[in-house]
């Protein structure tokens, strides 16, 4: 068919770069003031985790009884602990442990939660009802008691820790994803897709997942600090990462025991917990702004 009517006058479109959306998103994240700082800090944390053996000045588990409880000095920037180990090296190695637990725990939780959330949201009916009931039951468990019980049965280890985190965080992801799916499936563009005869998997892939991605990424960034907190908390109670492996929580616990002799121990272990928590939270907030498609309006 030939063009029928007059062509509408067109203003130059707002975003004409044609760049990949992820690249555009990253550029906008770096233009966000809090996002830039948070992104650099998170990048630094990841670098610490990946390159700990090269960055750390000493072996984190090497005991040196002669230099116990030393304060910060040129040889040991953050001093040494009750066994003479270099605190800075332990903090750097601890980053790896913290991020490993946080990332694998959150991703496992996301995988379980999001899958069940999409299933529940799409199926509705009794499947959804049963999942909802299960999720609410799990959320009502007191987290630390639940964790201690699991540790008591399976023994403290990295795997146990990740499993605990996955199972305790999954219901949250389930809730968010399911509710989002319910909202999305009531939207006309999903109805439109259905009216074209699109199958459920197709709708899930083309419409649900892209629209879920933003909220989920934000949620992960917001949850990572909480997970770091859980790991630190359990290690502080002696139920998480076991000595001599360095962990911020167990270091905090040690520092707490010697707070009168060597206050720098508690400070050195607490600071990375605070910094990483704040950085991930800010990153989440910045991502929330950046990932809103409408926020690109009027930008170059």
């Amino acid at each position: 068919m030939a063009p029928i009517t007059d062509t509408v006058a067109v203003a130059p479109p707002a975003n004409r770069t044609g760049a990949h959306p992820a690249w555009v998103g990253l550029r906008r994240l770096l233009a966000h003031p809090a996002g830039l700082v948070a992104f650099i800090v998170v990048l630094g944390l990841v670098a610490c985790a990946l390159f700990a053996p090269w960055i750390a000045p000493y072996d984190p588990v090497k005991i040196a009884p002669r230099i116990r409880f030393q304060g910060p000095s040129w040889e040991h920037w953050l001093g040494t602990d009750q066994l003479g180990r270099d605190v800075l090296s332990r903090v750097i190695y601890g980053t790896g442990v913290a991020l490993k637990v946080a990332l694998s725990g959150t991703l496992a939780a996301l995988l379980i939660g999001a899958t069940l959330g999409i299933v529940g949201g799409l199926s509705r009916g009794s499947v959804d009802g049963a999942l909802l009931l299960l999720c609410d039951a799990m959320r009502s468990l007191p987290l630390i008691l639940f964790a201690l019980a699991i540790v008591a049965i399976y023994g403290p280890s990295l795997a146990t820790l990740i499993a605990i985190i996955a199972f305790s965080m999954a219901p949250g992801y389930f809730r968010v994803v399911r509710n989002q799916v319910l909202v999305l499936r009531s939207m006309d563009f999903v109805a439109a897709s259905q009216s074209m005869g699109a199958s459920l998997p197709r709708i899930a892939l083309t419409h649900l997942v892209p629209n879920l991605l933003g909220p989920i990424i934000v949620l992960i960034a917001m949850d990572i600090p909480a997970v770091i907190g859980i790991e630190s908390g359990l290690s502080f109670l002696g139920q998480g990462i076991q000595p001599p492996d360095p962990s911020w929580g167990s270091m905090l616990s040690d520092g707490y025991s010697f707070i009168r002799q060597a206050p720098h121990l508690a400070i050195a272990a607490g600071l990375p917990v605070i910094v990483s928590t704040v950085a991930f939270t800010f990153l989440g907030e910045a991502l929330r702004d950046v990932l809103d498609p409408k926020s690109s309006r009027g930008r170059g």
Binding site: M1, I4, T7, V8, V10, P13, G18, R297
Partner: peptide, 16 residues
């Protein structure tokens, strides 16, 4: 073209 929109609409998003 049939509905009177120029081809560069193809690459736009709904909020634009």
């Amino acid at each position: 073209a049939e509905v009177g929109l120029s081809p560069d609409f193809a690459e736009r998003f709904p909020h634009q």
